[in-house]
Design a protein around this nucleic acid. Structure first.
Length: 288
DNA sequence: CTAGGATCCTGTCAGC
DNA sequence: TGCTGACAGGATCCTA
């Protein structure tokens, strides 16, 4: 579930906390969640490629972390007194403030200044050790398309042509077409661009493609600004639970509610096997 | 080559 | 209450 903005939020948050610190020990509670032998050493850099987080260590080693649907990273500094003092981001749920480790904790990194927990309910996510020099050869990284900020409308249009018969929603979720979009931001970008999610990619005009690209950038920038899904917008000041979607989502999770632009009822359908939210009035099907 | 569906896994929720 | 099926912010593998 964590998409590009969540991973970027984690990268920035952890950078301020664990850069130059040392991984002293790694405890793997679920073998499936950690590929390769555990590694120790100083943390030199935190990078991101699409939805993948890269932690570079001294000695030319890198940890590639993919949170997939339910991954979370939670850092608790030594001496922290309250759970709310943790830095927690990724899949938002009670683990942010739960007792850790718990049954969803897959990997624990013991750092020189605290503890970093990798939780992952569904075990789709993973941490993979590799040589820093080999990162670009990794299958996932190698096939990643550019992020929307690095891409022109023409480039995106060229990718859409390769999938002209598929639904536009499914195509923009393809990380080989555009890196970083996930199910939420795909729905939000299509809404902002006024494009029906089931339209065939081949029927999207260049003008619409450019609008979609701008919308994808805008919605993800806004989310990064708001701090993605973190402790900060999960636990509110009064202790109740907040939903960070409320901060920016115009269609995602709003099925049955009124469109904020036109008042029509937001619909939920399935496209490419994924729950898809759209406004039937603002996002017309022009082709087919 | 693309398109579409099944699959990995655990948990929650709606409906009976 | 207990069961069942659907669904979940991802990506890959398989088949047609």
């Amino acid at each position: 579930m964590p998409e590009l903005p969540e991973v970027e939020t984690i990268r920035r948050g952890l950078a301020g906390l664990i850069l130059k610190e040392k991984i002293e020990r790694t405890e793997v509670l679920c073998a499936k969640s950690f590929r390769g032998e555990p590694v120790e050493g100083e943390i030199l850099a935190l990078r991101r490629r699409g939805k993948a987080l890269l932690i570079d260590l001294a000695g030319g080693e890198t940890l590639l972390i993919h949170l997939r649907m339910t991954g979370q990273l939670i850092f608790e500094a030594k001496g922290a007194r309250r759970k709310e003092e943790r830095f927690a981001a990724g899949h938002p749920n009670e683990n942010f403030v739960a007792e850790l480790p718990n049954k969803q904790t897959r990997v624990i990194f013991y750092l020189s200044n605290g503890t970093l927990y990798f939780n992952d309910q569904r075990k789709f996510g993973f941490i993979q050790r590799m040589k820093t020099a080999e990162v670009e050869k990794d299958g996932f990284i190698r096939r990643l398309a550019k992020e929307p900020w690095e891409m022109t409308g023409e480039e995106l249009a060229a990718a859409l042509v390769r999938h002209k018969k598929a639904a536009i929603k499914a195509v923009i979720l393809d990380q080989e077409v555009m890196a970083g979009l996930g199910n939420i931001y795909a729905d939000e970008a299509l809404f902002r661009a006024g494009i029906h999610p089931e339209r065939r990619a081949g029927g999207i005009s260049l003008g619409e493609t450019e609008k979609l690209l701008e919308a994808a950038k805008a919605v993800m920038e806004k989310s990064i600004e708001l701090g993605g899904s973190t402790m900060r917008n999960y636990v509110k000041a009064d202790g109740t639970r907040g939903n960070y979607l409320d901060l920016f989502a115009k269609v995602y999770g709003r099925d049955g509610e009124k469109c904020l632009e036109c008042g029509a009822e937001i619909q939920k359908i399935k496209v490419g096997g994924r729950g898809t939210h759209f406004c039937p009035q603002c996002q017309r099907r022009k082709d087919d």
